[in-house]
């Protein structure tokens, strides 16, 4: 899938992450991360972002994250939301059932 427009999700509350996602045609995935826990969790956060993009078969996108200590599940949920909005598709809840 391709990101069609810029999407912005999340908040700057403690425990949340604010994600901005925008098109990056033909130039792959670019991630910019700002986080207080970057030293200890920067790698894990980037991994979560890449895995979520891959789950939606997104190959080109720019992602900017301003993380306020969000847990892994929060980052993945916010990413899924950002991707659906950027692509312009509703989230497929049935897929979730299949995975269980």
């Amino acid at each position: 899938m391709e990101i069609k427009e810029t999407s912005m999700v999340g908040t700057l509350e403690l425990g949340d992450v604010e994600i901005t996602l925008w098109p990056n045609p033909g130039k792959g995935i670019e991630i910019e991360l700002e986080s207080d826990v970057k030293l200890q969790f920067g790698g894990a956060i980037e991994r979560a972002v890449r895995e979520e993009l891959a789950r939606f078969s997104i190959e080109n996108a720019c992602v900017r994250l301003v993380d306020k200590g969000a847990l892994d599940c929060v980052i993945r949920a916010r990413m899924a939301c950002a991707i659906c909005r950027g692509v312009g598709v509703p989230y497929d809840w049935a897929k979730e059932d299949g995975e269980k």
Binding site: L39, Q40, F41, A44, L71
Partner: peptide, 9 residues
């Protein structure tokens, strides 16, 4: 389990 395994500083 909640946070994931932190990388050493």
């Amino acid at each position: 389990e909640i946070t994931g395994v932190p990388e050493p500083i």
